[in-house]
Every structure is written in structure tokens, then in C-alpha cells.
């Protein structure tokens, strides 16, 4: 299964890991945007999750608590966004951008004393003999719990948005807040919940970067993953399954280009490093173009603040 010195099985197994941060963040943002809110602060919430998760995990010695801490950190930052946009009716684009800058700065400050420390290890889920199945065991049964959690969230969100009343209400609020208000739904409260959920998911994604992917704390550790998550949501036409494809594509090319670098490829390192971003965007643009419906799939009230004027 080796091609050009790269083992395919290992590649697939590691792309699933590499995709987890952006997948989690993209799923969170997908729900936020479905509810009609454009939160551009994903990068900021991710890096807050990364540092909060790191501090909690180092402090308590428990990776699980670390992830919860990361989710909490992202959620707290997202509530700042929620307060500004849903209560004070600030512009969502400007607030989201400010949130990212704020998150980058604050995380750097909080992380001052955590450089060079190793976090506790997040182990693989013990599947026992299942791990020894050739190929499948390595790809499916060798991961830590967050990888399974991220895939489960894809299925869960797809089902919730498509088939449940909660999902219907979230979509309705994002489609027309005026109509939803007229029917008696609390638009801003529902959006607040969606924003908090998005923050928690982004925070968890960030924690995965600092606790598993890297694993240590460095300034700016998320390196633009939040922006990729945002792009994936749009080009995935707000569909969870497509977000999964987008995230795995990005993860796959990230891993592949690292392997190519290690294998001493003739392509200059700069091109390899930029390739995941370029190819992911390109493929998703092609996927979402030429259908007409994809562009129309955007929630109609996306980015608009709602104030009940009566």
C-alpha cells in the first residue's frame, strides 16, 4: 500500500486526525449560520479553546477535562460576540473580526507561562482485538475519542437539522427572523443558543490542536484553521456531510504535503505548504458552483441583526 514512500493506510488514518479541529469548528459555525448569524470570530474562539483547554488539561492532568475547558473557553468568547450582536445589535462582520483579534491577543497573554510544557496524553479508544484487523483496524479503530465524536456530530447535526423540530426552528430563524418572530419564536434567544454552541465546538476544535495535534502551546497555534472552517461552511452549502468532505480533503492534503516534504519531493516547500488551502478552496468552489441552488441555499437572514420593532 505504499506509493512514493507514503503509506496509504497511515495517510487515511492521519487525515482523520488532522481534520478534527476544522471539522468541529465548521460544524459549530454551520449551526450558527443556519440560525442566521455570521460569526467571523471562529479563529479567535478556536485559539481561546486551545489555550483554555491546554491550561485545564495541564492543571488537572485530565485530557477530558481539558476538552471541556476548551469548549467552555470558546463558548465564553462567543457569548461576548452574542452580547454585542444580539443585545447591542452591533455589526456582525466587524464584531466577528474583532473577536478573532481579541482571541489571538488574549490567548497569547494567557499562554505566557505554558510554553514548552507537555500536556497529558489523549489515548486511543481501547478497541482490543479490533485494532488488529488489517487496514480497517488502523483506519477505523485506532483513534482517540474526539475523532469519533466529530464524526458522530456530523450525523447528529445532519439529523437534527433535517428531521427534528429544533432543527426546523433553527432553520426558520435563519430564513426569516420577522416571520419567526410573528409566530412567537424568541429569535434572539435561539440565536444566542446557536452562537454558544458554535463557540463550544470551535473551542473544542482548538483544544484538539493544542492537546493532540501539536501537542504543546505556541502563540498563534491554530494557524488560520478557523478561516478554513468558515470557508468550508460556505462552500459546503451549509450541509454537514459536505463539511465533512471539505474537512477531510483539507486534512488529507495537509498530511500528504507533510509526507511529501519528508520524502524530499522536488516541489518547493512553499508550494506544498500552501496546497491544502488552495486545493480545498478550489474543490469546494467547483462543488458549489454551476448548480445555482447552492448559492441559494444560504440562510436568507444571514448576517442581519434582528430587533423586535412590533
Amino acid at each position: 500500500m505504499d506509493i512514493g514512500g507514503i503509506n496509504l493506510v497511515v495517510l487515511v488514518a492521519s487525515l482523520m486526525v488532522a481534520a478534527v479541529p476544522i471539522l468541529l469548528a465548521a460544524l459549530g459555525e454551520l449551526v450558527v449560520e443556519k440560525a442566521g448569524v455570521l460569526n467571523l470570530g471562529v479563529e479567535g474562539m478556536m485559539i481561546m479553546g486551545a489555550i483554555c483547554g491546554f491550561i485545564t488539561a495541564v492543571g488537572t492532568g485530565s485530557p477530558l477535562l481539558g476538552f471541556l475547558g476548551g469548549a467552555l473557553g470558546g463558548m465564553v468568547l462567543s457569548l461576548v460576540f452574542a452580547f454585542l450582536t444580539q443585545v447591542l445589535l452591533a455589526n456582525q462582520v466587524a464584531t466577528g473580526l474583532a473577536l478573532t483579534l481579541f482571541g489571538l491577543g488574549l490567548s497569547s497573554l494567557m499562554g505566557q507561562n505554558y510554553n514548552g510544557i507537555k500536556p497529558p496524553l489523549t489515548g486511543a479508544v481501547p478497541f482490543g482485538p479490533l485494532r488488529d484487523i488489517p487496514v480497517l483496524g488502523r483506519i477505523v479503530f485506532s483513534h482517540d475519542w474526539v475523532v469519533y465524536f466529530s464524526v458522530a456530530m456530523v450525523v447528529l447535526l445532519w439529523w437534527v437539522l433535517k428531521a427534528t423540530r429544533l432543527g426546523l426552528i433553527i432553520r426558520a430563524v435563519g430564513e426569516s427572523h420577522e416571520a419567526a418572530h410573528a409566530l412567537g419564536y424568541k429569535v434572539n434567544r435561539i440565536r444566542l443558543g446557536a452562537i454558544a454552541f458554535g463557540g463550544a465546538m470551535a473551542g473544542m476544535g482548538g483544544a484538539y490542536v493544542s492537546l493532540v495535534r501539536v501537542p504543546q502551546w505556541v502563540d498563534g497555534i491554530t494557524a488560520g484553521a478557523g478561516w478554513i472552517a468558515l470557508a468550508i461552511v460556505v462552500f459546503a452549502s451549509w450541509k454537514p456531510w459536505r463539511a465533512l468532505i471539505g474537512a477531510y480533503l483539507f486534512g488529507g492534503i495537509s498530511v500528504l504535503q507533510l509526507n511529501l516534504q519528508a520524502a524530499g519531493s522536488a516541489i518547493p516547500v512553499e508550494y506544498l505548504s500552501m496546497s491544502p488551502y488552495l486545493i480545498t478552496i478550489l474543490v469546494l468552489v467547483i462543488m458549489s458552483s454551476g448548480r445555482g441552488r447552492a448559492a441559494l441555499n444560504a440562510p436568507a437572514a444571514l448576517g442581519q441583526n434582528f430587533h423586535a420593532a412590533r
Binding site: 426546523l168 426558520a172 430564513e175 426569516s176 416571520a179 410573528a182 409566530l183 419564536y185 436568507a300
Partner: peptide, 24 residues
């Protein structure tokens, strides 16, 4: 029945009806 329709264009008829009901 509202003057300016309280409907959601990107949802289908059944979903729109469900949104206006207590226990659909």
C-alpha cells in the same frame, strides 16, 4: 393570518405549517 406573510421561502409547505403549530 398575517398581512405580510409569515412564511419561510426556503422551507416547504409542510415545514411552514409545522412551525405555526404547537404540537405538530
Amino acid at each position: 393570518v398575517f398581512q405580510h406573510f409569515s412564511l419561510f421561502e426556503a422551507l416547504n409547505v409542510a415545514e411552514n405549517v409545522a412551525l405555526g403549530m404547537e404540537n405538530p
